[in-house]
Design a protein around this nucleic acid. Structure first.
Lengths: 104, 104
DNA sequence: TAAAAGTATTATTATATCTTAATATTACAA
DNA sequence: TTGTAATATTAAGATATAATAATACTTTTA
């Protein structure tokens, strides 16, 4: 019984390693308390960097760096509206993951 | 409309920062392609380190280090059975997250 | 167009993570 | 009790991530 299952797993590993890398990258993007907080905030109601910065009480450049990582990972997108840029979470898997982990 | 929502978020942030840290630590534990692969393998059918090592084609100490991190994070537990140690995933949230992310 | 607000980028330092060889531990068998 | 298989630990170098001050960019308004 174990032989078949392990064989399947082995094939699965080889075939899907790129997939694991992609998902790991996404997870890495939210595996930080500030970024998790930012994502949660954006899920609850999109807002701009200044607002997030005030919430977290961090230097502007720190927040911007975290925003940048989330953007690079494809988790959030921003649209400019005048001086401000409004971000929102565009990765539905990540929305599900964050809701799953925070709603206990 | 925005004032109240943002106030709530601010309070939420302060109140739940420890929670964000804990969850971020869990996510960090699985935010690595090898460890994701190990967790997925253990979800599909628990097995020992040697088997995992053969699947991933990595040095034994590398696998053992990753196993160790998952164990420290409370994601897996092992029980010895003779020479082998069988690990299994004991964190149900993580099981849900991994299934969610890999079953697309 | 000059100033100011909102945001991004760069550069730097500190800290953490990753990989792996070498070594140690644990349990079983001869 | 020695040898061996399975796993863990240690140590070290390489790489990546984190925080933040300083600076630059972009858009609006005066």
């Amino acid at each position: 019984m174990e032989g078949s299952s392990l064989e399947n797993h082995k094939i699965d590993v080889e075939k899907n390693f790129k997939k694991y890398e992609k998902i790991a990258d996404k997870l890495k993007a939210i595996a930080h308390p500030y970024r998790l907080c930012i994502v949660k905030g954006l899920i609850d109601g999109e807002c701009n960097v200044t607002t997030i910065q005030e919430c977290l009480n961090l230097p502007q450049s720190t927040v911007s760096q975290h925003i940048s990582k989330l953007k690079s990972a494809g988790i959030i997108e921003g649209r400019r509206s005048g001086l401000e840029i409004c971000y929102r979470v565009v990765d539905n898997d990540i929305i599900d993951v964050v809701k799953l982990l925070l709603n206990d």
